[in-house]
Amino acid sequence: MLAYVVRRVLYAIPILIGVNLLTFALFFVVNTPDDMARIHLGAKHVTPEAIVRWKADHGYDKPLFFNGTATGPARLTDTLFVEKSLGLFAFEFGQADDGRDIGREISIRMWPSLAIALPTFLVGLLVYVSLALILVFFRATYLDLAGVILCIVLMSISGLFYVIGGQYLLGKLWHLVPISGYAPGLEGLKFMLLPVLVGVVASLGDSSRFYRTLFLEEIHRDYVRTARAKGLPERLVLFRHVLGNAMIPILTGVVVVIPRLFLGSLIIESFFGIPGLGSYTIDAIQAQDFAIVRSMVFLGSVLYILGLLLTDLSYTLVDPRVRLE
């Protein structure tokens, strides 16, 4: 298995270089370093000299991919791409355009993201799987039909509606939770309730339907019939046998998400004032802060690759037939 993990890690390197290359190309197709300087220097009294100084100060005064004025390998290494990319592979993210250390910001902001994303993920998983199993239990009845219709209705509503509706009802009208905000520690519990609830409800429709479909695939298998024939109660048949055997497709969707929980949710964080990495990314895109965008895309890629690796590893835990070589 170790050889497999090492091989997968090595595969990740060209992928990350490719992602970084694409990020560079896409970002600089839209924005030139001059544009970035203008945005950061503001609208008033911006002189061409100030733009030149800003670019030099932030290291944007070099060619993107090929330095025609250099000689030898420096033609490729003395470029914006290489200078800004190398550090990323050592998780040295450098400074944002406003001078703040990106690594420190990430280390601070991942906790609020996690504080919302982790309970949403865990509670959500429990609710979705339970609801799906209940629907499967009542399959082909009016309850199942009502549940499926409810799921479709929930799926059809924009996530933003749940956010605004939740804030309006629970925060503004009924005064039960703060409309938005965040605080660290125990004081933050009151702020977590609404975003977690909204996060769970927003995905209730599609996730429950997805799991219902998985469980329906399993419910007609021979082993289920055998379990019933043994006289096992339906509760155990569903939660032990059906759920256990549906684990591989569940893990495929679930484990890959776990590392990315650190990155938070863009909408939830923005509307609930959660100072996490989701809002950090959105702010950076709006401010055209390439240093942050590049770092967050890189980090997202690394976590996604990590998630895929963990998914593969988790298969060996739930299915003894799977061997990673």
Partner: peptide, 16 residues
Amino acid sequence: YSLEKEDIPEWGKFLQ
């Protein structure tokens, strides 16, 4: 001074 990026929550809290 608390960060409020969106108008709607800010307005709701003012009214409260």
